[in-house]
Design a protein around this nucleic acid. Structure first.
Lengths: 246, 246
DNA sequence: CGTAGTCTTTTGTCTAGACAATAGCGGCGG
DNA sequence: CCGCCGCTATTGTCTAGACAAAAGACTACG
């Protein structure tokens, strides 16, 4: 049976190793929603740990909404919800596909350079650091829905220089190739600059939603992305419980 | 010593009771950031539970960022971070105060009515349900920064009919008087309608950030708020870790 | 006075075991 | 065939105890 290749990486506490071992294939999409996860007893035996330790890992995954647990039925991979996407690094093409539309992507700029002062500031690296500059326009059903301005630190992801980005989006590529440990989003409204308006085919000064995202691997900055969408093309939704509950 | 009045409510699992007992005074602001929380041994003795149970409650609070734990030093109330505010119900006046500006509030409309079809749809109640309609304009340093359109279900919060909202904002009042169990945010950009532009003193069609929020207590809708801010007046920031980590 | 080593408190992790609650499943009686 | 009952797999919670790791506090020594 394929996909049962869950192994511990020996890094850090056991309950975190177990959680990672199970979270990895789920986040990578290797385990489809609804797939059953081995019971606590099976995992106990497989990893040679006590049930409390397994339970701690699974309860934590359930708390984050990655799996759903029911007594007697067992633990299954949860369906990714639109809500969860707000908090996670999200992938515009997957988002569009989920909405049932066809996604297209046009690469407008791709060049390597040394970071200017402004770019260095955005990416949180020293001026002069080698970066890859990207500019892409994403469309759904032929209409532009998002302009992606991106900087990637070559040091953090050297293999990116070999990627042409004809079919895979940079965000997706980075998710697949460079593990990140920390991310920051900022969300605001802004009026479209003439250049952005041109690419998105909207009037200059039209309202846009701007999401800026930075990711790190440890202390090493990986990428900075500014994602600009016309008003109405994108709505970010989140569902919460009070901080004291759950 | 005041503030040591932590008691269990007897509702649900012990570790959740303990977490609530500690989370409540922190969220209510009764325990200032930096205040030391009793050690696990003390709580063990106080509640007559095992250390694992106390540890589970405290570890969970630490995971949500409500407290910080350090070996030997103990557990202290964490400083509320700007990042956390994105996920939580947030209070514009506190936000403005934190930024060091003075907050003012103008009540533009306050009336009770039966929900129209549109309002019922927004608040997720049946048409005709009694609601309180509110319209307020929040200012920082004299400049309008947020227009608040709010509907409150009278059934969920009857005491709200006695409140004049001269000094306290409706969001704050609700936080203090009606416990909520679930909330939903949606964030988008939009162009200002003439009416909104007038209140916010910006040009019609100017870009705005619109946050809509619904809260429930169990299945009972409490309130719907639409918060509109001029572009740039508000930036929502969030920091994340991968879903598999922490 | 300063520094290095030692003690002690506090949190972090883990185990083995116990009992409870839930719900799927099969069998049994009608 | 249908409904009820009991069995059992599975998760949820809790305990008592153990050892580890971090870091403040103290002490002894130079």
């Amino acid at each position: 049976m394929p996909g049962t290749d869950i192994v511990l990486d020996g890094d850090g506490p056991l309950h975190q190793q177990i959680r990672r071992a199970i979270a990895r294939p789920i986040l990578a999409g290797a385990w489809a929603p609804g797939r059953r996860i081995p019971s606590e007893h099976e995992l106990m035996a497989r990893f040679g740990v006590s049930r409390m330790t397994v339970n701690r890992a699974l309860a934590s995954l359930a708390g984050e909404g990655l799996v759903e647990r029911k007594r007697k039925s067992g633990t299954v991979v949860a369906a990714p919800s639109a809500e969860r996407a707000v908090f996670e690094i999200w992938d515009i093409s997957a988002e569009i596909a989920r909405a049932g539309a066809t996604h297209a992507m046009r690469l407008l700029l791709r060049e390597t350079a040394e970071a200017t002062q402004v770019e260095a500031d955005r990416l949180r690296v020293p001026t002069g650091t080698p970066v890859l500059r990207l500019l892409l326009c994403h469309s759904a059903k032929g209409a532009p829905v998002q302009l992606e301005e991106r900087l990637v630190s070559v040091r953090a992801a050297p293999a990116i220089l070999d990627e042409r980005f004809e079919t895979i989006a940079p965000g997706r590529w980075l998710l697949d190739h460079v593990p990140w440990t920390e991310a920051e989003h900022s969300i605001r409204a802004a009026e479209a600059s003439p250049e952005i308006a041109h690419h998105l085919r909207i009037g200059p000064g039209a309202a846009c939603l701007v999401v800026e995202r930075r990711t790190w691997r440890g202390d090493e900055p990986i990428t900075f992305a500014r994602l600009t969408s016309p008003a109405g093309a994108q709505v970010l939704i989140g569902r919460f419980r009070p901080a004291g509950e759950r």
